[in-house]
Design a protein around this nucleic acid. Structure first.
Lengths: 165, 165
DNA sequence: TCGGAAAGGATAGTATTCTAAGGACGTGAG
DNA sequence: CTCACGTCCTTAGAATACTATCCTTTCCGA
Protein backbone atom coordinates (compact mmCIF):
# COMPACT_ATOMS: atom_id res chain seq x y z
CA UNK A 1 0.00 0.00 0.00
CA UNK A 2 3.03 2.27 -0.49
CA UNK A 3 1.14 4.55 -2.84
CA UNK A 4 3.50 7.16 -4.27
CA UNK A 5 1.76 10.46 -4.84
CA UNK A 6 3.05 12.97 -7.29
CA UNK A 7 2.68 15.73 -4.72
CA UNK A 8 1.74 15.86 -1.02
CA UNK A 9 -1.79 16.93 -0.13
CA UNK A 10 -0.59 20.40 0.88
CA UNK A 11 0.40 21.10 -2.70
CA UNK A 12 -3.23 21.18 -3.75
CA UNK A 13 -4.34 23.57 -1.03
CA UNK A 14 -3.36 26.23 -3.54
CA UNK A 15 -6.15 26.06 -6.11
CA UNK A 16 -3.79 27.37 -8.76
CA UNK A 17 -2.17 23.95 -8.61
CA UNK A 18 -5.47 22.12 -8.84
CA UNK A 19 -6.45 21.00 -12.30
CA UNK A 20 -10.06 20.78 -11.19
CA UNK A 21 -10.07 24.41 -10.09
CA UNK A 22 -8.30 25.60 -13.22
CA UNK A 23 -10.70 23.67 -15.41
CA UNK A 24 -13.65 25.26 -13.63
CA UNK A 25 -12.31 28.76 -14.13
CA UNK A 26 -11.49 28.10 -17.78
CA UNK A 27 -14.90 26.63 -18.42
CA UNK A 28 -16.75 29.50 -16.77
CA UNK A 29 -14.71 32.23 -18.41
CA UNK A 30 -15.16 30.58 -21.78
CA UNK A 31 -18.88 30.29 -21.22
CA UNK A 32 -19.29 33.85 -20.14
CA UNK A 33 -17.34 35.31 -23.05
CA UNK A 34 -19.14 33.14 -25.54
CA UNK A 35 -22.50 34.14 -24.14
CA UNK A 36 -21.67 37.80 -24.60
CA UNK A 37 -21.75 37.13 -28.31
CA UNK A 38 -24.53 34.60 -28.58
CA UNK A 39 -26.99 36.51 -26.41
CA UNK A 40 -27.29 39.16 -29.09
CA UNK A 41 -28.96 36.40 -31.11
CA UNK A 42 -31.02 35.23 -28.12
CA UNK A 43 -28.98 32.08 -27.63
CA UNK A 44 -27.68 31.24 -24.16
CA UNK A 45 -24.43 29.39 -23.61
CA UNK A 46 -26.37 26.32 -22.55
CA UNK A 47 -28.47 26.36 -25.70
CA UNK A 48 -25.38 26.95 -27.78
CA UNK A 49 -23.85 23.67 -26.59
CA UNK A 50 -26.80 21.73 -27.92
CA UNK A 51 -26.92 23.71 -31.15
CA UNK A 52 -23.24 23.00 -31.79
CA UNK A 53 -23.93 19.29 -31.81
CA UNK A 54 -27.05 19.65 -33.89
CA UNK A 55 -25.18 21.71 -36.47
CA UNK A 56 -22.91 18.72 -36.89
CA UNK A 57 -25.84 16.36 -37.26
CA UNK A 58 -29.52 16.67 -36.54
CA UNK A 59 -32.26 14.08 -36.70
CA UNK A 60 -30.71 12.18 -33.80
CA UNK A 61 -32.49 11.03 -30.66
CA UNK A 62 -32.46 12.84 -27.36
CA UNK A 63 -30.35 10.19 -25.75
CA UNK A 64 -27.78 10.37 -28.50
CA UNK A 65 -27.76 14.14 -28.24
CA UNK A 66 -27.32 13.97 -24.46
CA UNK A 67 -24.25 11.83 -24.82
CA UNK A 68 -22.69 13.98 -27.47
CA UNK A 69 -23.23 17.16 -25.51
CA UNK A 70 -22.07 15.51 -22.31
CA UNK A 71 -25.20 16.20 -20.27
CA UNK A 72 -27.64 13.97 -18.46
CA UNK A 73 -31.00 13.39 -20.04
CA UNK A 74 -33.15 15.49 -17.73
CA UNK A 75 -30.88 18.39 -18.59
CA UNK A 76 -31.44 17.72 -22.26
CA UNK A 77 -35.19 17.63 -21.76
CA UNK A 78 -35.16 21.07 -20.18
CA UNK A 79 -32.75 22.48 -22.76
CA UNK A 80 -34.80 21.13 -25.66
CA UNK A 81 -37.94 22.68 -24.22
CA UNK A 82 -36.33 26.07 -24.30
CA UNK A 83 -34.87 25.46 -27.76
CA UNK A 84 -38.28 24.40 -29.02
CA UNK A 85 -40.00 27.39 -27.43
CA UNK A 86 -37.43 29.66 -29.07
CA UNK A 87 -38.11 28.09 -32.46
CA UNK A 88 -34.68 26.51 -32.90
CA UNK A 89 -35.70 22.87 -33.07
CA UNK A 90 -38.67 20.63 -33.70
CA UNK A 91 -39.21 17.12 -32.34
CA UNK A 92 -40.42 14.25 -34.46
CA UNK A 93 -41.77 10.85 -33.57
CA UNK A 94 -41.87 7.85 -35.88
CA UNK A 95 -44.00 4.72 -35.91
CA UNK A 96 -41.05 2.34 -36.01
CA UNK A 97 -40.21 3.04 -32.38
CA UNK A 98 -42.66 5.16 -30.50
CA UNK A 99 -40.27 5.70 -27.61
CA UNK A 100 -37.76 7.70 -29.58
CA UNK A 101 -37.89 11.39 -30.32
CA UNK A 102 -35.79 12.77 -33.15
CA UNK A 103 -34.52 16.32 -32.99
CA UNK A 104 -34.34 18.54 -36.08
CA UNK A 105 -33.08 22.07 -36.46
CA UNK A 106 -35.38 24.70 -37.90
CA UNK A 107 -34.14 26.69 -40.91
CA UNK A 108 -33.64 29.65 -38.61
CA UNK A 109 -31.32 27.65 -36.33
CA UNK A 110 -29.41 26.34 -39.32
CA UNK A 111 -28.79 29.84 -40.56
CA UNK A 112 -27.48 30.83 -37.13
CA UNK A 113 -24.53 28.48 -37.52
CA UNK A 114 -22.85 30.93 -39.86
CA UNK A 115 -23.01 33.66 -37.25
CA UNK A 116 -22.59 31.74 -34.02
CA UNK A 117 -20.09 29.01 -34.84
CA UNK A 118 -17.24 31.46 -35.54
CA UNK A 119 -17.73 32.97 -32.09
CA UNK A 120 -16.23 29.88 -30.51
CA UNK A 121 -13.20 30.16 -32.76
CA UNK A 122 -12.86 33.75 -31.64
CA UNK A 123 -12.88 32.86 -27.93
CA UNK A 124 -10.27 30.23 -28.72
CA UNK A 125 -8.06 32.85 -30.27
CA UNK A 126 -8.33 34.95 -27.14
CA UNK A 127 -7.82 32.01 -24.81
CA UNK A 128 -4.70 30.78 -26.57
CA UNK A 129 -3.19 34.18 -27.23
CA UNK A 130 0.59 34.05 -27.09
CA UNK A 131 0.73 30.28 -27.37
CA UNK A 132 2.21 28.41 -30.32
CA UNK A 133 0.10 26.01 -32.37
CA UNK A 134 2.12 23.16 -30.92
CA UNK A 135 1.42 24.29 -27.37
CA UNK A 136 -2.29 24.49 -28.05
CA UNK A 137 -2.27 21.01 -29.57
CA UNK A 138 -0.44 19.73 -26.50
CA UNK A 139 -2.94 21.36 -24.17
CA UNK A 140 -5.85 19.76 -26.03
CA UNK A 141 -4.17 16.37 -26.06
CA UNK A 142 -3.48 16.48 -22.34
CA UNK A 143 -6.98 17.62 -21.50
CA UNK A 144 -8.34 14.71 -23.54
CA UNK A 145 -6.03 12.41 -21.66
CA UNK A 146 -7.33 13.71 -18.32
CA UNK A 147 -10.91 13.31 -19.52
CA UNK A 148 -10.19 9.74 -20.48
CA UNK A 149 -8.45 8.93 -17.20
CA UNK A 150 -11.34 10.28 -15.18
CA UNK A 151 -13.89 8.49 -17.35
CA UNK A 152 -12.04 5.21 -16.87
CA UNK A 153 -12.16 5.67 -13.13
CA UNK A 154 -15.85 6.54 -13.18
CA UNK A 155 -16.54 3.40 -15.20
CA UNK A 156 -14.56 1.31 -12.75
CA UNK A 157 -16.52 2.67 -9.83
CA UNK A 158 -19.82 2.10 -11.61
CA UNK A 159 -18.97 -1.51 -12.26
CA UNK A 160 -18.04 -1.98 -8.64
CA UNK A 161 -21.31 -0.57 -7.39
CA UNK A 162 -23.20 -2.63 -9.98
CA UNK A 163 -21.61 -5.72 -8.55
CA UNK A 164 -22.51 -4.71 -5.06
CA UNK A 165 -26.10 -4.03 -6.04
CA UNK B 1 -9.44 43.20 -40.89
CA UNK B 2 -7.36 40.25 -42.14
CA UNK B 3 -7.70 38.40 -38.86
CA UNK B 4 -5.72 35.16 -39.01
CA UNK B 5 -7.35 32.41 -37.00
CA UNK B 6 -5.48 29.42 -35.74
CA UNK B 7 -8.20 27.15 -37.14
CA UNK B 8 -11.33 27.66 -39.22
CA UNK B 9 -14.66 27.67 -37.42
CA UNK B 10 -15.44 24.12 -38.59
CA UNK B 11 -12.56 22.83 -36.52
CA UNK B 12 -14.41 23.65 -33.34
CA UNK B 13 -17.62 21.93 -34.34
CA UNK B 14 -15.99 18.86 -32.83
CA UNK B 15 -16.17 19.53 -29.10
CA UNK B 16 -13.11 17.36 -28.57
CA UNK B 17 -11.18 20.22 -30.13
CA UNK B 18 -12.83 22.84 -27.97
CA UNK B 19 -10.92 23.82 -24.88
CA UNK B 20 -14.12 25.14 -23.33
CA UNK B 21 -15.82 21.78 -23.75
CA UNK B 22 -12.82 19.83 -22.49
CA UNK B 23 -12.53 22.10 -19.48
CA UNK B 24 -16.19 21.56 -18.66
CA UNK B 25 -15.86 17.80 -18.80
CA UNK B 26 -12.69 17.81 -16.72
CA UNK B 27 -14.24 20.07 -14.12
CA UNK B 28 -17.40 18.01 -13.81
CA UNK B 29 -15.65 14.67 -13.69
CA UNK B 30 -13.29 16.00 -11.06
CA UNK B 31 -16.15 17.35 -9.04
CA UNK B 32 -18.13 14.18 -9.18
CA UNK B 33 -15.26 11.92 -8.20
CA UNK B 34 -14.25 14.21 -5.38
CA UNK B 35 -17.80 14.31 -4.09
CA UNK B 36 -17.93 10.54 -3.93
CA UNK B 37 -15.33 10.78 -1.19
CA UNK B 38 -16.40 13.92 0.60
CA UNK B 39 -20.08 13.00 0.81
CA UNK B 40 -19.24 10.22 3.26
CA UNK B 41 -18.31 13.10 5.58
CA UNK B 42 -21.40 15.10 4.65
CA UNK B 43 -19.46 17.62 2.61
CA UNK B 44 -20.63 18.49 -0.90
CA UNK B 45 -18.22 19.44 -3.67
CA UNK B 46 -19.45 23.02 -3.47
CA UNK B 47 -18.82 23.20 0.27
CA UNK B 48 -15.46 21.56 -0.20
CA UNK B 49 -14.31 24.44 -2.41
CA UNK B 50 -14.93 26.91 0.36
CA UNK B 51 -13.41 24.68 3.00
CA UNK B 52 -10.23 24.30 0.96
CA UNK B 53 -9.66 28.03 1.08
CA UNK B 54 -10.55 28.28 4.75
CA UNK B 55 -8.10 25.51 5.58
CA UNK B 56 -5.43 27.69 4.07
CA UNK B 57 -6.57 30.69 6.09
CA UNK B 58 -9.68 31.46 8.06
CA UNK B 59 -10.74 34.65 9.75
CA UNK B 60 -11.09 36.40 6.40
CA UNK B 61 -14.09 38.36 5.16
CA UNK B 62 -16.79 37.02 2.90
CA UNK B 63 -15.65 39.16 0.04
CA UNK B 64 -12.09 37.98 0.35
CA UNK B 65 -13.30 34.41 0.50
CA UNK B 66 -15.47 34.90 -2.59
CA UNK B 67 -12.50 36.10 -4.58
CA UNK B 68 -10.25 33.29 -3.46
CA UNK B 69 -12.82 30.63 -4.25
CA UNK B 70 -13.68 32.28 -7.54
CA UNK B 71 -17.39 32.70 -6.89
CA UNK B 72 -19.67 35.71 -6.80
CA UNK B 73 -20.81 36.98 -3.45
CA UNK B 74 -24.41 35.81 -3.52
CA UNK B 75 -23.08 32.33 -4.13
CA UNK B 76 -20.82 32.69 -1.11
CA UNK B 77 -23.70 33.87 1.05
CA UNK B 78 -25.70 30.77 0.24
CA UNK B 79 -22.73 28.45 0.63
CA UNK B 80 -21.83 29.92 3.99
CA UNK B 81 -25.37 29.47 5.19
CA UNK B 82 -25.15 25.78 4.50
CA UNK B 83 -21.67 25.55 6.00
CA UNK B 84 -22.89 27.32 9.12
CA UNK B 85 -25.96 25.10 9.39
CA UNK B 86 -23.71 22.05 9.07
CA UNK B 87 -21.50 23.33 11.87
CA UNK B 88 -18.39 23.87 9.75
CA UNK B 89 -17.98 27.62 10.21
CA UNK B 90 -19.00 30.48 12.44
CA UNK B 91 -19.28 34.16 11.49
CA UNK B 92 -17.94 36.97 13.60
CA UNK B 93 -18.49 40.69 13.53
CA UNK B 94 -16.17 43.28 15.04
CA UNK B 95 -16.74 46.86 16.18
CA UNK B 96 -13.92 48.27 14.07
CA UNK B 97 -15.93 47.82 10.88
CA UNK B 98 -19.51 46.76 11.34
CA UNK B 99 -19.95 45.93 7.67
CA UNK B 100 -17.47 43.10 7.65
CA UNK B 101 -18.14 39.51 8.62
CA UNK B 102 -15.19 37.28 9.40
CA UNK B 103 -15.41 33.56 8.76
CA UNK B 104 -13.84 31.03 11.12
CA UNK B 105 -13.68 27.27 10.90
CA UNK B 106 -15.04 25.19 13.75
CA UNK B 107 -12.72 22.60 15.34
CA UNK B 108 -14.71 19.91 13.57
CA UNK B 109 -14.09 21.47 10.16
CA UNK B 110 -10.41 21.88 10.95
CA UNK B 111 -10.10 18.22 11.78
CA UNK B 112 -11.76 17.32 8.48
CA UNK B 113 -8.80 18.73 6.59
CA UNK B 114 -6.74 15.68 7.43
CA UNK B 115 -9.32 13.40 5.88
CA UNK B 116 -10.65 15.50 3.01
CA UNK B 117 -7.62 17.36 1.69
CA UNK B 118 -5.85 14.16 0.57
CA UNK B 119 -8.88 13.24 -1.50
CA UNK B 120 -8.06 15.98 -3.97
CA UNK B 121 -4.52 14.66 -4.29
CA UNK B 122 -5.99 11.25 -5.00
CA UNK B 123 -8.22 12.52 -7.79
CA UNK B 124 -5.18 14.26 -9.23
CA UNK B 125 -3.31 10.98 -9.28
CA UNK B 126 -6.13 9.40 -11.20
CA UNK B 127 -6.55 12.34 -13.56
CA UNK B 128 -2.87 12.48 -14.47
CA UNK B 129 -2.28 8.76 -14.64
CA UNK B 130 0.31 7.88 -17.26
CA UNK B 131 1.59 11.43 -17.54
CA UNK B 132 5.08 12.52 -16.54
CA UNK B 133 5.62 15.16 -13.87
CA UNK B 134 6.83 17.51 -16.58
CA UNK B 135 3.68 16.98 -18.62
CA UNK B 136 1.50 17.71 -15.63
CA UNK B 137 3.46 20.88 -14.88
CA UNK B 138 3.04 21.93 -18.50
CA UNK B 139 -0.69 21.31 -18.38
CA UNK B 140 -1.05 23.42 -15.25
CA UNK B 141 1.04 26.21 -16.69
CA UNK B 142 -0.98 26.28 -19.90
CA UNK B 143 -4.28 26.25 -18.07
CA UNK B 144 -3.08 29.18 -15.97
CA UNK B 145 -2.11 30.95 -19.14
CA UNK B 146 -5.58 30.43 -20.61
CA UNK B 147 -7.18 31.63 -17.38
CA UNK B 148 -5.09 34.78 -17.54
CA UNK B 149 -5.83 35.39 -21.22
CA UNK B 150 -9.55 35.10 -20.65
CA UNK B 151 -9.41 37.28 -17.53
CA UNK B 152 -7.56 39.97 -19.49
CA UNK B 153 -10.24 39.94 -22.13
CA UNK B 154 -13.02 40.12 -19.55
CA UNK B 155 -11.31 43.11 -17.95
CA UNK B 156 -10.98 44.83 -21.31
CA UNK B 157 -14.66 44.34 -22.05
CA UNK B 158 -15.64 45.62 -18.60
CA UNK B 159 -13.64 48.78 -19.11
CA UNK B 160 -15.25 49.28 -22.49
CA UNK B 161 -18.75 48.93 -21.12
CA UNK B 162 -17.85 51.20 -18.21
CA UNK B 163 -16.88 53.83 -20.71
CA UNK B 164 -20.09 53.36 -22.66
CA UNK B 165 -22.18 53.56 -19.48
C1' DT C 1 -18.99 68.50 9.19
C1' DC C 2 -21.96 66.62 6.10
C1' DG C 3 -23.61 64.54 1.99
C1' DG C 4 -22.56 61.59 -1.81
C1' DA C 5 -19.93 57.65 -3.16
C1' DA C 6 -17.89 53.31 -2.10
C1' DA C 7 -17.61 48.92 0.45
C1' DG C 8 -19.55 44.79 2.51
C1' DG C 9 -23.12 41.89 2.67
C1' DA C 10 -28.00 40.18 1.85
C1' DT C 11 -32.21 39.30 -0.90
C1' DA C 12 -35.02 38.18 -4.95
C1' DG C 13 -35.52 35.97 -8.97
C1' DT C 14 -33.79 33.09 -12.61
C1' DA C 15 -30.99 29.61 -15.20
C1' DT C 16 -28.59 25.40 -15.34
C1' DT C 17 -27.70 21.02 -13.91
C1' DC C 18 -28.06 17.06 -11.19
C1' DT C 19 -30.26 12.56 -8.81
C1' DA C 20 -34.17 9.73 -8.10
C1' DA C 21 -38.16 8.07 -9.56
C1' DG C 22 -41.87 7.06 -12.86
C1' DG C 23 -44.30 5.98 -17.29
C1' DA C 24 -44.75 4.35 -21.96
C1' DC C 25 -43.01 1.44 -25.36
C1' DG C 26 -40.26 -2.70 -27.18
C1' DT C 27 -38.09 -7.32 -26.84
C1' DG C 28 -36.99 -11.93 -25.82
C1' DA C 29 -36.98 -16.23 -22.94
C1' DG C 30 -39.86 -19.61 -21.51
C1' DC D 1 -48.24 -15.32 -25.92
C1' DT D 2 -46.84 -13.10 -21.85
C1' DC D 3 -44.42 -10.97 -18.53
C1' DA D 4 -40.20 -9.37 -16.82
C1' DC D 5 -36.61 -6.59 -18.15
C1' DG D 6 -34.46 -2.91 -20.93
C1' DT D 7 -34.84 1.47 -23.45
C1' DC D 8 -36.24 6.22 -24.05
C1' DC D 9 -38.13 10.06 -22.34
C1' DT D 10 -40.30 12.77 -18.60
C1' DT D 11 -41.33 14.70 -14.03
C1' DA D 12 -40.16 16.21 -9.34
C1' DG D 13 -37.22 18.18 -6.28
C1' DA D 14 -32.91 19.93 -4.96
C1' DA D 15 -28.25 22.16 -5.33
C1' DT D 16 -25.44 25.54 -7.36
C1' DA D 17 -24.47 29.79 -9.46
C1' DC D 18 -25.65 33.86 -11.68
C1' DT D 19 -27.48 39.13 -12.35
C1' DA D 20 -29.77 42.92 -10.50
C1' DT D 21 -30.94 45.34 -6.66
C1' DC D 22 -31.07 46.95 -1.95
C1' DC D 23 -29.57 48.00 2.92
C1' DT D 24 -26.18 49.32 6.20
C1' DT D 25 -21.90 51.18 7.32
C1' DT D 26 -17.74 53.67 6.25
C1' DC D 27 -14.98 57.01 3.93
C1' DC D 28 -13.70 61.27 1.86
C1' DG D 29 -13.75 65.78 -0.39
C1' DA D 30 -15.70 70.36 -0.43
Amino acid sequence: MAQRFRHPAEYYTDPENSIGYLARVVFRSFSRLLERGTLTHDVSAGQWRFLRQLWRQDGITQRELSERVGMREPTTVVALKSLEAAGFIRREKTDTDKRKTYIYLTPHAKRLELVLAPMNAEIHEIATRGMTDAEVATLQAMLRRVVENLADETRTLSVLSDVQA
